[in-house]
Simulated assay, not measured.
Amino acid sequence: MATDREIALEQALVAVFDAASRGQCSAEVLLARATEMLVPNHPRYNWQNIDQTKSELSSAFATGMMG
């Protein structure tokens, strides 16, 4: 059984890839677009643990920007 963090990480990854498929953009714009998608009752995705997913997404970008 997946942990809450694993679910959040998977959802964050899906959001990033979906945002990236819309075209080239900066990391900041990509983060903003992915975060905008993380809303309850999204027409395309059944998000769970939205707050944790946003946190994981922000952490991933912060880590990536430092690396």
Rank of each mutant, 00 (worst) to 15 (best):
L13C: 10
Q24C: 03
T53I: 03
L9I: 09
Q52K: 13
L30S: 05
A19W: 03
N46C: 07
A62L: 14
M1F: 03
M1T: 10
P40T: 07
A32Q: 13
S58K: 15
T3S: 15
L57H: 02
E36K: 07
P40D: 11
R33K: 12
L38Q: 04
V14R: 02
A12I: 09
P40G: 01
Q11W: 05
D51V: 07
Q11P: 12
P43Q: 02
G67N: 13
R22M: 07
W47H: 04
Q24L: 12
N49W: 01
M37S: 13
Q52R: 14
A20D: 09
S21V: 00
L30Y: 06
E36S: 12
D4T: 02
K54W: 00
D51H: 04
N49D: 08
L38V: 05
F61W: 05
G23C: 11
V29D: 09
V14C: 00
A62H: 10
E10D: 10
S58N: 14
A32W: 02
V29I: 07
K54C: 11
T63V: 10
Y45C: 05
F17N: 12
E56P: 15
R44M: 10
W47Y: 09
Q24G: 13
R22Q: 13
V16Q: 01
R44S: 07
S55V: 06
E28G: 11
Q48F: 01
C25E: 08
E36T: 06
G23D: 08
L57C: 02
I7Q: 10
G23Y: 09
C25L: 08
W47D: 03
E36L: 12
E56D: 07
I7T: 15
T3I: 08
S26E: 10
